[in-house]
Design a protein around this nucleic acid. Structure first.
Lengths: 176, 176
DNA sequence: ACCTCCATGGCACTTGGTGTCATCAACTAC
DNA sequence: GTAGTTGATGACACCAAGTGCCATGGAGGT
């Protein structure tokens, strides 16, 4: 994974072959594909951790919280984790921004995250429809805030940016 | 495109090679790639039309409408178009549902759609943040309703399903 | 000293995707 | 009507991602 990010940063994602990544890591291409199901996946091994943290935070929400409040309870541990990895996140975000196929992978990871959150809500007896929409709303808030966060210099701003996104979403969806 | 959908339906997406598609269409593989940038794209040529319709409906929204009302004004022409293509949409949805790489492509098309809607909102002097969130909310509502619509038998239900999603989103994001 | 397991290497193979050149038909100009 | 131009297609070689299969060798257990 380090070898891959170095090479992507040095010479671009497309211009880097899996054989090169494997060579820098002291392995063969065949072994690379035993650890990562494809070339894109090497940038997304952290998504499992993101999901774990979010679900953990979500589980700590009080029983009587609203669906969206349950979802956003996951944002605290997530913000904490990312705050320590601002530099890494920036480099990674730059690589992804330059490559549509990586953006596709990122989007499906967020979709999977939303699906997992939906599942957790349904477990807590939220209706399926409300669960899907609350989960998507939460993930969108995260995604939008994340995009802002990697474009500016304050690593600690993530939590605040998420709250701002959430407020904005609330005001946007408020019925007239 | 017809050749591709036939083959995907008959034997699955992965099991179908581009050479086979081209052969059934009476062309060569090289020519296929002159019309479609990759194998996935053959299922997404309609996304341009979707975006065009949505932006058209959006442009017809009254000047004083709220950001989300502007966005959802695009849903009318979209619902109309899809209502006439329920059978096609079902087959296509089945193929996509069975293949993660097609789901990725679908998600990025929706992301592009959201970006275009955001652009149209910004043109109408909506703030960038509100525009992004309203656009994503609208696209999520569409996506959720679409998934329900292809799973049931009433082609005319699409507009109603979108309204239901929108109401659900409103109630979910309403502050406590 | 032997056995078993498991990670890795090696290698051939398929397929998606691209660069490049040849061909051929439609159309234009004179 | 002949020559030139343009644009779509075919043909072909090539690269890189990804997979199946078997060989090998080291770690650990008996």
């Amino acid at each position: 994974m380090s070898a891959a990010i170095e090479l992507f940063d040095e010479q671009g994602y497309e211009a880097t072959t899996v054989a090169e990544i494997a060579e820098r890591a002291g392995l063969t291409k065949r072994t690379f594909f035993r650890y990562f199901s494809d070339k894109r996946e090497v940038l997304f091994s952290g998504s499992h951790e993101l999901q774990r943290l979010w679900l953990e935070g979500l589980a700590a929400a009080p029983a009587e919280a609203s669906p969206l409040a349950i979802v956003t309870a996951g944002l605290d541990p997530v913000a904490e984790m990312f705050t320590e990895r601002h530099d890494f996140a920036r480099i990674r975000a730059q690589i992804i921004e330059a490559n549509p196929e990586l953006q596709e992978r990122e989007l499906i990871k967020l979709q999977n995250l939303a699906a997992a959150i939906k599942g957790a809500l349904v477990e807590r007896d939220v209706s399926a429809n409300a669960a899907i929409l609350a989960a998507h709303a939460g993930v969108t808030v995260f995604h939008v805030a994340f995009a802002h966060w990697v474009q500016q210099n304050d690593p600690t701003a993530f939590r605040r940016l998420m709250d701002e996104s959430l407020d904005e979403l609330r005001s946007v969806t408020a019925a007239q």
